[in-house]
Structure formats: C-alpha cells, structure tokens
Amino acid sequence: MSTVRITDVDPTRGDELLAWNSLLGEGFNAGREAAWWASDETTSARYGDPKPDRTSVLLLATREGLPVGAAGADMDPGEAAEVEISVLPAHRRQGVGTALAEAVRDRLRGAAEIMQAETYSEAGVAFATTLGLRAGHREHRLLLDVPVDLEALRAQHARPAGAPSAPKIQVRSWTGACPEGVIEEWARLTTQMEEDVPLGDLTRPAARSDVAGVRRSEQRMADQGWILVRSLARLDGAAVGYTEMFVNRHDPEIITQDDTLVDPGHRGHGVGRALKLANLENLRGVDEAREARWVQTYTAPDNTAMLTLNRAFGFRDADQLTILEGTVG
C-alpha cells in the first residue's frame, strides 16, 4: 500500500483552504442526517481574521496525489486543543487517520498539553481510544423539522384551566448584538452557563463572558455570517434566563439552537418553555430562516428536564456526539 503524505495547508491561500474545509466536512459527516458544516464564506472569514493568540493546524492527507483525509486543530492559550480528524469512507482502516493524528500531535507539542476530539460514531470512539483518548462527555444531537407550527405549540404548552397561577414571565427578544440595556445581564447569565453546562469528565475552559468578551464574540459571529436570534426572560424585574439560536446567512438550511439557561433558583416555573416559544416567534422575523429545514440542538443524556422540554417541542434524536480527551504527549 502506498505511503500517506501529510502536508500543511496555508489558510491564506483561499482555494487550498476551501478544498481542505470541504474534504474535512465530507469525511466527518459521511452517513449522517442533516449534518451542519461551515460554509466557504464562514471558513474564509474565520481564517482571514483569526482570534489573537490562537494556534491553528490545518493538515491534508494524500495518497498517490489524491486527497484521502484532513485534520484541523485550534487552541487558545492555556486551553485544550480542539481536534478534528476526517478520513473519506473509501480510505478508512488504511492508516490515514493514524498518520493525521500523529501529525496533529507533532504540531501541537509545546503549544498545548490537552487535546479534545469529537465523533458521532462508535468506530470513531474506538479509533480515538487507540490514540490514548478517553470518552469524557456525550450529548444527544436533536433535530426539529421546520417550519414549526407555533400556534399548535402554544396550545400544547398552555397552562390548563384551573391550574395554580405561575409567576409572570417577561421575555424580551431581538436579533443581532445585545441592546445596551441588557448587555450586563446577558454577560452575567452566559458566564453562569459556562460554569454550569455539563461537561462530564472534560477539562472545563475558563469563563470568558464579560461584556467585552460578549461584544468581541458578537462581532466575530457577524463577520462570519451568523445572525444571532436571542431572548431574555425576567421575573420580578430580574433576568433569570436566556436562549439563543444562530442562523448562517450563507447556508441557512440548519439553524443552531445554542444555549438555553434558566437560573437554578427559578426553574420549574415555565421559564425555559416561555423562552423557547418566544425565540421561535422571533425566528419568524429572520428572512434567511425561511430557507431552513431543521433546527439542531445538543443535550446531555442526564439533563432530563431539557431533554423532556426539547422533545415536547418536537425535537427528535438524530445521533450522539462523543467528546474524548487525552494528552498531546
């Protein structure tokens, strides 16, 4: 069998970058339903204006001159490196993935101590385990078919006649960057989300959601083509929860339902339900969302309250994400 050749991809060379991204996505998403991957426009914007101090590794695997796999790794100072390894189905179990993994580790040495990798298959878990990684966290990936019948959802989630009255929940919704009047509350709640989100046995990254960090993230998301669809809930004037979805204007087929947080002291009062209903209504005002076919979200298996709520909204299981972690070595 011919030798696998690993080469570095120069992210400043547009054609090479987009070919690498396409190959990485083709192998990573092979056989999966409604699997999102970054568009050409988003990829160009991401690597055209990289985050300060971020280390990125882009690798291409070829055999006899033909591309057979790709790998990528991104690392911020002091954080675990996020690694993706992808091999085209026809070239698996021929040493391509192992060669890519060795090359990734070689380039990360001295820059990172810990690496994390994601997979959606048991074969991927088995491969990562042979590299010395261990499964640290799993999440269900769920899909909601759109358009959604909001009237039916409102009727389904209406409080039954005669039920005890609930606290008055006020929800404010918008698209894009946070209005100045809510940015402090948003930063506080997103910091809480970073601290509370289940990560199993994975190394937890440092919290970044101060006001300046939120503004930097909003600008980068906008530059990469993302439309932010957001709602914030208040009880008795205090912000107690939020939710957000991301719509990519370059490739809006799959909408990402990202965080939904309810402050622990205010759970069980319908805040999460009110947020999700309001934000789906908010989504109706986004022109690009009319081209969408699915909303995608992730929920940990032991987060039973959120799994129950998501399924009540019509989300169904698509596959399972496993995140593995190990030392760079």
Rank of each mutant, 00 (worst) to 15 (best):
V4Q: 04
I6K: 08
T7G: 05
D8L: 12
D10Y: 07
T12R: 08
R13P: 09
D15G: 10
W20R: 09
A35N: 12
W36A: 01
S39R: 00
K51V: 10
R54A: 08
R54M: 11
V57W: 02
L59D: 04
G72D: 10
D76N: 11
E79Q: 12
V83E: 01
I85G: 06
A90E: 09
V96N: 08
L100Y: 05
A101D: 12
D106M: 10
R109P: 00
G110I: 03
G110C: 02
I114W: 00
I114D: 01
V125S: 10
A126M: 06
F127H: 09
A128R: 14
H137Y: 15
R141I: 06
L144F: 00
D145S: 07
D145V: 02
V146F: 00
P147F: 00
V148I: 02
L153G: 01
P164V: 13
I169N: 07
G176V: 09
C178W: 11
G181C: 11
G181W: 03
T190H: 07
T190W: 04
T191E: 15
Q192M: 02
D196L: 04
D196T: 03
G200F: 02
T203V: 03
P205E: 06
S209A: 06
D210V: 15
G213C: 12
R215F: 06
A222D: 11
D223F: 14
Q224L: 11
G225S: 06
W226V: 00
A233P: 06
R234E: 08
D236I: 04
A238H: 09
E244N: 14
M245Y: 05
M245W: 02
F246I: 09
T256V: 12
D258V: 09
D259C: 02
T260L: 13
V262Q: 03
H269F: 08
V271S: 09
R273A: 02
R273T: 07
K276M: 08
V286S: 08
R290A: 02
T304P: 13
T304A: 13
A305V: 14
T308P: 10
F315E: 07
D319E: 07
T322G: 05
I323A: 03
G329S: 07
